[in-house]
Amino acid sequence: MDFLDIFLTVGFWAATVRMATPLIFGTLGELICERAGVLNLGIEGIMTMGAMVAWMWVYQGGDLWTGILVAALLGAAIGILHSGFSVYMGLSQHVTGIGITLLSMSLSYFSFRMLLPGISTPPKITPFAPWPVPGLSEIPVIGEALFTQTPLTYLAFLAIPAVAWLLYRTPIGLAVRTVGENPMAVEAQGINVFHLRTGAVAVGSALMAVGGAFLTVSVFDAFYFDMVNGRGWISIALVIFASWHPGKALLGALLFAAFDALQIRVQQASDIAIPYQFFLMMPYVMSILALIVMSRRAAYPKALLTPFRRGER
């Protein structure tokens, strides 16, 4: 297969859209947290937890959608734990975030082992089936790439304008953006900074968990260790790439997913004489380059990483 032929296959574009989905959830979630002034490095662990919990719920006989809901709620709960340390106690957001990631990742693996002892091959569930959008999926190429996906992918793409509307068109969005700029401005207008930040971190973490759940109940049908595989960290980079704007987050997620999809296909093409590890590396190199270019002009939320303590300036 020729290198350029890859771009002509519908499968490549469909894969790009599919692989962008968890990144969109993760990036939007992280973006909401950071807009409120809290860096959430717990994302990798929260995505792992979401993946495990949703899968386990379905495996134990639960419904797919309820599984997503359970993952979201647990994600929110971990988010609240994060904000207990980072917002209420004002501890280092870096340390808290890494701790949350380690905790929830290990907890996921531990629970998996506890609930399913002595299993060597991961058991399977019946995941979401593709749901072709009536009418639109008939369009050649675009129909197959965009409109023959699983429901969670549609949800991710709808979440982008929803989050953008929330942040830029509603009073709560204004408050969230302001608290990430200057918490004192929020406090002085009679809004509780702690509640606001905790709410934002909880909602953001719920989205991250849904992104993780997508992996086990939509793409694959089983839970593997390390299956989140750095998608959380990539989401953090994508937030910077997107300069904290939901619309640009979509662009970043698609770009990264495209490189990832390309990398898989190039690996399989036997007549390309470059070691496959090179292509494995490509998405990450690309994201570093994109960061260098994009983050130059990025105006980050000014109060990011700064805990708010009442009665201090």
């Binding site: 009073p171 204004l174 302001t178 401005a185 002085a188």
Partner: peptide
């Protein structure tokens, strides 16, 4: 209260800073 160190968010507009907290938080539009 007009604080000595202004409590304004710099990268937002005057109107944003003024209406913040004056509307019900969970309204769908402003």
């Amino acid at each position: 209260m007009v604080h000595q160190h202004f409590t304004l968010a710099d990268n937002m507009t005057v109107i944003d800073n003024i209406v913040l907290g004056t509307e019900p938080l969970f309204a769908l539009h402003q």
